[in-house]
């Protein structure tokens, strides 16, 4: 588990808006958009990687806070 990280949409086009990432997120970072997930409160991300590990479509990746 990353100490502090930041979630990124690495493959936004692959999102099928199933909402699993929202379900497994312990804080409030993500929201369902029209055709893909949206990162609405990135500052809340604790870097737990639940979303990345649960996403069935390889859309999300949690990176180091400092990483671009």
């Amino acid at each position: 588990m990353a100490k502090k990280g930041r979630v990124k949409l690495v493959k936004p086009d692959w999102c099928k808006t199933c909402g699993i990432c929202i379900e497994v997120c312990p804080v409030e970072v993500l929201e369902l958009g029209q055709d893909r997930i949206k990162i609405v409160y990135p500052e809340n991300c604790v870097g737990c990687e639940n979303c990345e590990l649960s996403c069935p479509d390889f859309v999300l990746k949690v990176v180091d806070e400092n990483e671009e």
Binding site: K11, W14, G19, L53, S54, C55, P56, D57, F58
Partner: peptide, 23 residues
């Protein structure tokens, strides 16, 4: 380990197959 040009996969929204495969 993924053939990027073959994705996104055909599995339905919410199907757990992608999660299993990724892990």
């Amino acid at each position: 380990y993924l053939r990027q040009d073959k994705l996104p996969h055909i599995w339905c929204p919410g199907c757990g197959h992608g999660t299993i495969m990724a892990n």
